[in-house]
Each structure stands twice: as C-alpha cells, then as structure tokens.
C-alpha cells in the first residue's frame, strides 16, 4: 500500500527532462497547459499529442507509469465525453431518441475533450515524475519570491509544502497502524452503510490528529536543533542555474505554440 502513493511520486532518472531546471519546467508546463486550451482543430491537438508522446519518451518514464496517473481520471474523462456527445449538436445526425441526439459535431467534441484532458494530465504528471518534490517546492519558492514584496512569507509556505509531502507516507503508515489497532479491538470498519462507516472513522482520525500534533511538536524541536530560524540567511546545496538545455526546451515549446496557432488557422475548428 505504501508504495502506491503517487502524490509527488518521483521517478528516479537522468533524462533530459530530469536535468532541466525545475523553474523552467514549471513555466513550460504551465505554458503547455495553456496551449492545450488554445487548440481549436484536431490537427493542432494532434500536434500536442505528438509532442506529449515525444516528451514521455524523452523523460524515459515507462509508459506503464504514465498510464497509472491516468487511471484515476478515466471516469471523469468518460463522463466529460458522454456529456459532450449529447449536449453538442450540429452536422449530420446519426441517431435520435427523444431529446437525445447523436450528431457528428457531438462525437467530434467528445473525442476532442477526452484527448484534451488526457494531454493535460500526462503533461502535468510528467512534471512530477521528473522533478523531486523538493525541487518542485524550491522552484515554486523561487518563482513566487517576488511576492515577498507584499510581505507574503514565500519561504514559510514552501517549507510547509515540503513538510506536508515528507509526512504523507509517514501518516499513511500511521493510519494503517491505527486501523489495525482498532480492528484488533473489534472495530468494524468495512461493514455497514455510509453513515455507519463514517462514524467508524472517528476512532481512527482522533488518534491520528493527536499523534500528528505530537509529531509536529517533536519535528519543531528537531528543526530548532538544526538551527532552523526561517528563510533568512539560508543557503541552498542545490543551486538552480539555467543551462543551455533549458533554453533549447523553451525555444522548442515556443515553436510548438507557433505550430498550434498555424494549424488552428488553416484547419476547421472543432470547438
């Protein structure tokens, strides 16, 4: 169970994407997500798909792992597709039943939407597969650092994120332990209706809260012992430096934008 946690799941590797600066990756992924929404025709979207597949190959993350990140979203994708099939009408009508109409435009939109979501998910999960959570929070901290002008404590926020990520596996382990302990005392966690089951969760979450506070207290002690006094005067072991490969990637993504816009212009829009 522990190994199943995929939040911040980093795939150890040494690829082009792994070596890129996390800040650049962050910005580029954000740009790519916007590009996906700019796509109007099947051809521009196809270009994005090709690019995404290329990026996955470049990252050397196994396809199996990428599929795993899609799995939880299958229902959402199907649901979106289904809604779009019947709510968008236009073009040739293939099938009609009461107010439900299956039209050419409906099918096109449904496929378009499904592919769009898939691309969104794969691109953003590539970011977490190729960047350690630490690097990611570091990147966020640095990208947001201009906000400190407005007295927003960016470092504190980033530290909180790091600690949250760090403690997810620990707390999952803890939940398992508490559940087993309560089961050993005869708690029934897997039977009964929704209400009975939610009630059964109380004796799990109360001890979890208590122990989390104790952990937080001890962790604060340990951090003090290691001279942590907040963001001021801190240095970093891992420096972030933009390298030629980051600019190559940026140019590549810019070219992709041009491609998307050109294809949008020359081919018929689906939505």
């Amino acid at each position: 169970m522990i190994s199943d946690i995929s939040i911040g799941q980093y795939f150890t590797g040494n690829s082009f994407l792994h070596k890129m600066d996390a800040r650049m990756k962050f910005i580029l992924v954000f740009a790519l997500l916007v590009f996906v929404f700019l796509c109007k025709s099947f051809f521009s979207l196809a270009l994005m798909v090709v690019f995404t597949v290329f990026a996955v190959i470049l990252s050397k993350v196994p396809f199996k792992m990428v599929l795993k990140s899609i799995k939880p979203l299958v229902i959402i994708i199907l649901f979106t597709a289904l809604l779009n099939i019947f709510y968008t009408t236009g073009g040739t009508t293939y099938f009609e039943w009461h107010s439900l109409k299956l039209t050419e435009k409906g099918i096109n939109t449904a496929i378009f939407m499904a592919v769009r979501i898939l691309v969104l998910v794969v691109i953003s999960s590539l970011l977490t597969y190729t960047t350690t959570p630490t690097m990611l929070t570091d990147a966020i901290e640095r990208l947001l650092s201009p906000l400190s002008v407005f007295h927003i404590k960016v470092h504190t926020l980033a530290m909180m994120m790091t600690l949250a990520l760090r403690f997810i596996p620990t707390l999952v382990e803890e939940i398992e332990r508490i559940m087993n302990a309560q089961k050993a005392r005869g708690a029934e966690l897997e039977t009964g209706g929704l209400i009975a089951r939610s009630k059964a969760l109380v004796p799990i979450f109360v001890p979890l809260m208590v122990s989390s506070f104790r952990r937080a207290y001890e962790l604060a002690f340990a951090m003090t012992c290691r001279c942590y006094t907040g963001g001021e005067g801190r240095t970093r072991m891992k420096q972030m430096k933009l390298k030629p490969r980051d600019f190559i990637a940026a140019v590549f993504v810019a070219a992709l934008l041009a491609g998307v816009l050109v294809l949008n212009h020359f081919f018929e829009a689906v939505i």
Partner: peptide
Amino acid sequence: VATIVEDDVAFGPEN
C-alpha cells in the same frame, strides 16, 4: 525534514 536523504543532510548546513 526532506523527502530525499541528501537534502535532509543538507538541511542543517543550509540553515
């Protein structure tokens, strides 16, 4: 503190 062993060891000197 950190999610990677070497980052954790670096935490003290970074501070």
